[in-house]
Design a protein around this nucleic acid. Structure first.
Lengths: 195, 195
DNA sequence: TTCGTCATGTAATGGGTTACATGATTAC
DNA sequence: GTAATCATGTAACCCATTACATGACGAA
């Protein structure tokens, strides 16, 4: 239930796989370190953490630093809550990582997937990369078609906007080509899906 | 009330300023012709149109084609509804166009603003363009700072993702520089905010 | 006559934000 | 002692999508 789902859930799981953390720290890493995700608010993060706990993917632990211990010892006080990935949570994340369906090549999903490529097996990486590329190529086709149909009716600014948009997409395709090429060449720093 | 607001409202007003249209056609232009906006669904478009009518920015007109007339003549039949911008609506859109506050340089807002630059006065265009540029430069600063702080702890893929992200932003800054330059140079095809 | 596409709408749901409320800890 | 920032949470709202429901019209 209450699947506060998708990217946030995925990203939280992925970050906690590297190390246990509390909510506040998690949010900072979400917003800055990875640089990928949009700035999630506490209003979405904390409820998401609660639902992950309810699902059994995460457990809450009291903070381990001395102040936390002191704070916790005082009855009724609220201490820092450190979240740790459970075995089930790890397994679940592994499953999410293995999905290579069409959603995985959408903009935000793709960025999230890429951010955890270090924990992904090479064949999955290839499928995601190639899926993303074909997704972009479709998009490019549509843009070209619609541009051909309407070029005359558009003013200079609209035209410039479309041109710039297409150029950006084309650039990403070239970037993907390089990545795919280097995956093929086998420059594969990390062995497999695990460790 | 019920301000189904922001980009969709703005875009609808902008498109209707060029010519009256019915909902279905409006959606197609939103999704393809302008190429800028994400694909809005009818579930958001139609309620938005209703609320714009309720605000007095739009009026509903019966379709003008022969079939529409026939359809309308049969009591109780639902005919195509053509939406036309009212004088108040035009004025309202004009006001929206004149706002150059910080929201106007956010990603989606900026794209929407740019799409209607043809109907915008040069000084407003300059403010929006320059605002957007400084917004991106701030973002770049943050990315550089966070990268400098965390470089060692990041794996190759995360690093590559950040590098590519920054490069994209840098490219957009260069693009803006060119646009600003050409605005300064006065290559100004369209006279002013009106006609 | 049936299929595609044009055309308009609504109810339920989703996935997030804002604003608010609370309180501990650190640095000055 | 007071200000900033760390830290956790909730309720109200927002803006959109999905799935559904309806029906006209043109072409095969």
């Amino acid at each position: 239930m209450s699947r506060r789902s998708g990217i946030l859930e995925f990203a939280v799981l992925g970050l906690l796989r590297e190390a246990p953390m509390h909510g506040y720290e998690l949010r900072k890493r979400l917003n800055t370190s990875l640089g990928v995700f949009r700035a999630f608010s506490y209003g979405s993060l904390y409820p998401c953490l609660k639902s992950l706990v309810a699902n059994g993917w995460l457990i809450e632990e009291p903070g381990s630093s001395p102040e936390d211990a002191r704070a916790a010892s005082l009855a009724g006080r609220r201490a820092k809550i450190v979240y740790r990935l459970t075995a089930e949570g790890k397994e679940h994340f592994e499953e999410l990582l293995a999905h290579t369906g069409p959603d995985a090549w959408e903009d935000e999903h793709f960025a999230a997937r890429f951010a955890f490529f270090g924990q992904t097996s090479r064949d999955v990486r290839m499928r995601v990369l190639e899926g993303r590329r074909s997704r972009l190529e479709e998009r490019l086709e549509k843009m070209r078609a619609s541009l051909a149909r309407t070029r005359e009716r558009l003013d200079d600014y609209t035209l410039e906007l479309q041109r710039h948009g297409m150029e950006s997409v084309e650039r990403e395709v070239r970037w993907l080509n390089e990545l795919i090429e280097s995956e093929r060449a086998g420059r594969d720093k990390r062995p497999g899906p695990d460790q």
